[in-house]
Each structure stands twice: as C-alpha cells, then as structure tokens.
Write a protein that binds this DNA or RNA. Structure first.
Lengths: 223, 223
DNA sequence: GAGTGATTTGACCAAATGGTCAAGATGCAA
DNA sequence: TTGCATCTTGACCATTTGGTCAAATCACTC
C-alpha cells in the first residue's frame, strides 16, 4: 500500500498529509515552478528540481510518481490563483473602478508571480496539452459570465461599445506581457516589474490606455 | 575542407550556395520553425526536423553543424521579418493612420506567421539566450527611434500624452497574444486568426481600443 | 563516360535523463 | 526499547538523443 493514500502514522492532517509530506510537497512544488517556468516542460529535469528542493531524485519520485505528475500538480497549484482576479469583476460596481482594479490586480500578479505567468504561457503555447479541458469548461464559463457583465455596462450606456471578449484578451495580453517578456522589457528599458517605480508607471500607463480606449474617463476627476 | 565554405561545383549562386544547398537549407529552416515553435528548443529533436524536411538526420547535420546552429539560423531568418513593421512608422504621416497601419501589419503577421511569433516568444521567455545582444542593440535603437516619433506627435498636440514605450509594448502584447495563445483563444471563442472574419473583427477591436486609448478618434469620420 | 568533389546515409557512440528497486535511516506509538 | 510504517537514498536500467564517421551515391565537368 502506497504511503500517499493510506498512512497509519501521524494522520488527520489537512488533506490527509503528514507533516513531512506537507513540507516536502511544498518544497517540490516551489522548485518545480522555478524550473518549469525557466526551462519549459521538456527542458526541465527531475534531477534539478530535486536538487533545488534539497532532496534526492529518488525521494522526489516518492512524492510524485512522474515528471508529468509534478508538472500537473504545479499547474493546478497556480491555476486557481491565476484566474482569481477576473472573478472579482462586479456587475454592480463602477465600470471604470472595476476595470482599473482588475488591471491593477493582474499587473501585480505579473510583478509578484512572473514564474507562474511564464509557466502558464508555456503550457498554452505548447497547445495546452494538460489544461485544455479546463480552458474549454471552467475558463470558458468564467469569461462568458464576465463578458455579460461588460455587455450590461455597455447596454446601460456606461461605456463605449466594444467586444467584451477582446477587451478581456487585451487586458490579459498587456499585463502578462510584462511578466513573460520581462527580459526583453529589461533589455529595452533597463527596468522591469520588480522595480516598484516601474510597476507603478506601467500600471498607470496601461490602465489609462485601456480605460480611455473603452470610453471611460481616466484617471477620475477630483482629488 | 567543408563544402559549406569552399565549393568547386556549380557556384556563383546568391550567397555562394549551390542549387541543392539552397533548396535543402530552406527545407530545413521551414521544418525547424515548425518543430521549434511547437516544442521549444529543448523539446524539439533533430531527428523530427530532419524527417519533416524529408532527409536523414545525418544529412541535416551536414548542412548545420549542431541543433543550436539550426536554432540560431531559424531565429535569424525570422527576426528580420518580425521587426520590419515597426520600421515603417513614419513621422510625417498622420498618427492615427500610421498607428492603425502598424497594428494592422502586426496583427496580420500574427495571423500569417503564428509559428514565428511563438518561436520568438519562446526564445525571450527562456531569457533570450541567443538574441539578447540583438535586443540590447538593434531593437533598443529602433524602439528609441520610434519612441521619438511618437513623442514628437505628442509634442505637436496630435495625440494624448502617453509613454511611447508602453504604447509600443501594448501593441506588441495584444497582437502577439492572438498568435501565441491561439489555442486558448480557440478554446474560448471557437475561432482564431486563421479565420479571416475573426482576424477582421480582432483588428477592428484592437485598433479602436488602442487608438481611442491614445486620444485619436477612430474609426475616422466620413466615407 | 570517367573522374572529382558534393551529397546522402546507416551504423555507431557517449551523455543525459526518466524511472525502478532493494536496502538503509528515521520517526512515532506502545 | 521495540516494532513498524514512513521516509530517503545510491545503484542501476532502458531509452532518447545530439553528434561522428566511413562508405556509398549523386551531380557536374571535361
């Protein structure tokens, strides 16, 4: 009987994992995110992930049955966080405030978790072999729902008529670009989102461009 | 003496390449673009590239000395085409027309050469190991030059004050997104840029958003 | 059509790598 | 302390893969 399912020792932990299991799985997932985001799935090696996690390759394979299993776990681990911001877009709020907040959240995700952004980009660029089903179901539903929110704002005359889906794509594209292409950004400007000042400037520029682009006056008057 | 430098037979061709060399190098570069853009550098195999080019691995390695050599040649081959559109941005033209034309060109590049876009994205996401020097010199110079063009339009009161570099990044981000993430786009909308109608819609949406975003009225009145 | 260099290939090699396994070390309950 | 399950590891294996090489074939010149 494998230890990952039926433990007798120190059980009753969250998710049924022992203290050691919990710790090591986290070490592995952190290392895996670093490795996979830098090298892609094929370029990553189990050996390096294990080394970065501070354990032997054999031990890593005791916790995850294969390289693909680590990869999937890593993807699943970040995907939830990655899609969270869109869920906060609130029909009843002010369109300008809501969209600005969304762009802000996404841009800070790019600043704080650029590795997650690159991992996701890599996965999708390879044809989304692992997460295509999720895109087609969960993400599709979420986008449809939020498109409707935007559509309602348009119907109510609160913003210019635009295709909501393209608006969402534009926000994804711009915010993630600063994470995924940070090396290029750094080569051209000498800075990237890890610089708080640059983050601030970028947020301001992008938000102004997109909000004005959809016919919302920005930045707001007064103050 | 290697055949790639000193040929006696059928010489005097463009670049000093024989007819056969010319043909095979092109076959290889096409196959390499396909393979590298789908699998990334590490995931690609010389064997598959050779197969797709219709020759043996040994023969391929007769034309390119190593996997890395093929990769570099492929990158160099597309880079020129990839950066060409920006060069056409013309100081003396109408800002709205010029920017719209640039966005249009970039979007059609994404539609017609999505593989090139993905190859480039992959390279940069991995830290641009091969083309970083080019980004830091040629591309940096080009961006600085075109930023000045935009800056001059702003000074002349022809458009709203925006950071020219962020504007360029936004155009790159949005247009390339539709190529690099085409699988996701397809999963969410059922279509991608290979559909002429979708290309048209996307071009219209993105152009309108960005031009209005920088304070240019779009689409133009009349007609 | 003979000769020469260009082109093509299969056989082969060495290194890297994902994964297995048996044995040893460690932690926990009694 | 003892006993048992968990945890950890080094040795090992099979496969993949980038690259070499000598030999065979082809294309062109004379």
């Amino acid at each position: 009987m494998t230890s990952l399912t039926g433990q007798t020792q120190e059980n009753s932990k969250p998710g049924g994992l022992s203290r050691i299991q919990e710790k090591n799985r986290n070490l592995i997932l952190d290392a895996a995110l670093s490795e996979f985001s830098r090298k892609g799935f094929s370029g990553a090696t189990v050996e390096r992930i294990a080394a970065e996690a501070g354990m032997s390759k054999s031990n890593l394979l005791y916790y995850f049955s294969s390289k693909e299993a680590i990869y999937n776990a890593t993807l699943a681990h970040i995907l939830e966080v990655w899609l969270a911001p869109l869920k906060t877009l609130n029909q009843d709020g002010d369109p300008a405030q809501e969209l600005a907040a969304y762009i802000c959240q996404k841009m800070e995700m790019s600043a704080n978790f650029p590795e997650a952004s690159r991992l996701f980009a890599n996965e999708v660029m390879q044809g989304a072999p692992q997460i295509l089903p999720i895109l087609q179901t969960d993400l599709k539903r979420l986008v449809a729902e939020k498109s409707l929110v935007i559509e309602n704002w348009i119907e109510a005359g609160k913003m210019r008529r635009v295709d909501p889906v393209h608006l969402i794509f534009t926000i994804w594209a711009t915010t993630q670009h600063y994470a995924d292409f940070s090396v290029q950004i750094r080569a051209l400007t000498g800075r990237d989102l890890s610089d708080p000042e640059f983050l601030q400037e970028t947020e301001t520029s992008v938000t102004a461009l997109i909000l004005n682009g959809v016919g919302l006056s920005w930045p707001p008057e007064g103050e």
